[in-house]
């Protein structure tokens, strides 16, 4: 297990700058993701899960945190200590990528989708080669007409298509870990299911590890192998997804599960199965 450990976070502390003083957003957290594993982090708003996710892929702007300490080992390298240049090199070499809840904020509104995916490709190639790669990535992200999509601007796409475009960009560096922060919370239910199916397929076909950050236990149940439950900057528990739902160790987890379950009625399909 430890040999195949892809991401190994030890005692991570992130204190964010706030209007008055600091917020202990992440307060001594351990987190591991094995190669090809799908791990979920669940928690309610303000528990620090998004900060944790962004810290793990070194996407926290320097101006935002007051203190960042601990170890973040990715494939054995401590990336918490890496210089910006070394970090850039690592990002380009099949390491990690991230997608976000609101894809529109991460796409350049004035450029077409094609070039935005193209510039994320790690090496320079001929124009046709790049175009073919871009189309392949878009198709892999579940966009069935890559040639049309590549010519579109972000605002011309639906929410689900934008998220897929962002996934295509994330895939460009052939990452071994994809961190997804609330990847489908802004999407309609029907579209959400399709994007999740795409993530599941990428996870299986590419053997890509997933770290899913969400407030939605339904999403965790759908996708994840192992789940961390986070509250107020700390990890309450970590368990295999089935164990977590069957016998939650912490009362907070039990309550979250109970509330979600109460919310959900059996769908007609399950009634038929009974």
């Amino acid at each position: 297990m430890s040999a195949a450990l892809l991401l190994d976070v030890r005692n991570l502390v992130v204190h964010l700058r706030a209007e008055n003083g600091v917020v202990r957003a992440v307060d001594g957290v351990d987190l591991t993701v094995a190669s090809g594993e799908c791990v979920g982090i669940v928690g309610e708003s303000g528990c620090g899960k998004s900060t944790l996710a962004r810290a793990v892929v070194r996407l926290l702007p320097n101006v935002e945190y007051a203190q960042l300490s601990g170890e973040i080992r990715f494939g054995g390298i401590d990336i918490a200590a890496l210089s910006p240049a070394a970090l850039r090199r690592l990002r380009r070499s099949s390491s990690f990528s991230m997608i976000f809840q609101d894809p529109l904020g991460y796409l350049n509104p004035t450029r077409r989708i094609g070039p935005q995916v193209g510039e994320a490709l790690s090496d320079t190639r001929s124009r046709t080669e790049t175009r073919n790669r871009v189309h392949a990535l878009l198709r892999e992200a579940g966009l069935t007409e890559p040639a049309t999509i590549a010519r579109r601007y972000p605002h011309e796409l639906s929410g689900g298509m934008r998220q897929r475009a962002l996934i295509a960009i994330a895939l460009a560096s052939s990452p071994r870990l994809l961190v997804a922060d609330e990847p489908t919370s802004a999407l309609d239910a029907t579209v959400q299911l399709q994007v999740l199916a795409t993530l599941r397929r990428l996870h299986q076909e590419r053997g890509m590890a997933l770290l899913i950050v969400t407030h939605d236990l339904g999403l965790v149940a759908e996708l994840c192998d192992r789940v961390y439950v986070m509250q107020a900057g700390r990890m309450l528990e970590c368990a295999d997804v089935f164990t977590l739902f069957d016998t939650p160790a912490h009362p907070y987890t039990a309550r979250l599960i109970e509330l979600s379950a109460r919310r959900h009625r059996p769908t007609p399909q399950h009634e038929a199965a009974e």
Binding site: D216, A221, V241, I257, S260, H264, A273
Partner: peptide, 18 residues
């Protein structure tokens, strides 16, 4: 029907059976 079926199920076994 599509809408009802698209809701996520907070139960890993049922979700995966689907």
């Amino acid at each position: 029907k599509a809408l009802v079926n698209a809701t996520l199920i907070p139960d890993p076994r049922l979700a995966r059976a689907r």
